[in-house]
Design a protein around this nucleic acid. Structure first.
Lengths: 213, 213
DNA sequence: TTTTGGTTTAACCATATGGTTAGGGCAAAG
DNA sequence: CTTTGCCCTAACCATATGGTTAAACCAAAA
């Protein structure tokens, strides 16, 4: 049976496509390069995935599917909102660190494709954890609003707080070359910077949610 | 003299190129589209700017030159570090808001071009304010380190603090489609979100630099 | 052994794309 | 009025690119 060969080749293609698409984006990627990377003929790409667009979609979806489930699962665990946010930061950051080029890729493609990919994006988020009550931001926002009603995060508005947290986690990866250039970090220094990052973001959360006495 | 026509055409081209490059990136931009946008023949692009690469460079440099000088100037004014950071946030945010697609563009191209554009980037930063003592991050970092010696921003490390501030300012623009999709904002809601943003970031600074009594 | 049907390839195709060129146009200098 | 020199265009070129096709390959079924 050729089923294994079949599946294996498809996987090899996806692996190669992922590598190339993530690095160069849809517009910058070349089908030939993907084929070379996969060690096969260019025609195979079209045999398994009809078009560049379809192959790209698959890569885009898988990139999200690789990162989001753990994050989504993390925010479902029962905790105080402060601890939940810390967990979110830790899990989210580590997920991004494990796939450091995904965010810039996703953001760039989302920007380029106005809305059409956004649907795919949201759909992928929904499937991250099959029967969750909503997207992870909604879950966090709801709990934050409940906390806000108790006056918990001071004057910090829930949506801004959430965006700030995501920003603090993701930005270092999205802006890595800029940060290194601007702040004079080499690769090693940047890795050390990343090592400290989570605890520094948690510090922010500590100041936003001061320990009640 | 045709000098005015000359300069005018060059400007028209740059305007068009900026529009197209910022929207689609180097790889996604088409010379033909730029020519159409400028309402001229494709050959003119090569007459004024030798190649796509050169035209792109020019656009890239100008995009930075439009945004950074005011930011750089802002951090040179004598102030307490806390107020200086607030000023930085205000000016930086407003500059980015005035050119909302520049950051994602710059970050994507910086990522794509590994180091070669990074040099252009740093060079452009240096020229932002002719005889400043250093890049704006260095200035802020130095002052933050001095403040840290006085124990001022608590356990917050200067580099993380600075990255967090930049992240909080820039991320909303870089991640706009994602944020809107994830948090269910339409354009109007997002604009309102942006209106509140600076004050919310300042709140963060207030908690990091508690008012000394 | 032959047949069969999915897998893979080399060659090919149409078009898009960055770039070039020869010449026309036109304002200013002579 | 003619010449000069830059501005501009239409047409063209070579190559890259996404995609297709006909045939070869090859394991498993008959």
């Amino acid at each position: 049976m050729a089923n294994t060969r079949d599946a294996d080749t498809a996987r090899r293609i996806l692996e190669a496509a992922r590598k190339v698409f993530l690095e160069k984006g849809m517009a910058g990627a070349r089908m030939q390069e993907i084929a070379d990377e996969a060690g096969i003929n260019k025609a195979m790409l079209h045999y398994y995935f009809r078009s560049k667009e379809q192959l790209f979609r698959q890569v885009f979806e898988e990139a999200l599917a690789d990162m989001m489930p753990k994050v989504h699962a993390a925010v479902l665990q029962p905790m105080r909102i402060k601890d939940k946010l810390k967990t979110f930061v830790r899990v989210y950051f580590e997920q991004v660190r494990a796939h450091p080029v995904v965010p810039l890729f996703v953001l760039h493609e989302l920007h380029r494709s106005g809305a059409s990919l956004a649907e795919v994006f949201v759909e992928q988020m929904k499937q991250a954890v099959p029967r969750a009550p909503g997207l992870f931001p909604q879950i966090l926002l709801d709990e934050l609003r409940a906390a806000a009603a108790r006056g918990e995060p001071g004057a910090h508005k829930p949506d801004h707080l959430l965006v700030s947290l995501m920003a603090m986690c993701v930005f270092p990866f999205v802006a890595r070359p800029m940060i290194c250039a601007l702040m004079g970090m080499d690769e090693a220094a940047f890795e050390r910077f990343l090592d400290e990052r989570v605890s520094q973001v948690e510090l922010f959360l500590d100041s936003v949610f001061p320990e009640e006495r």
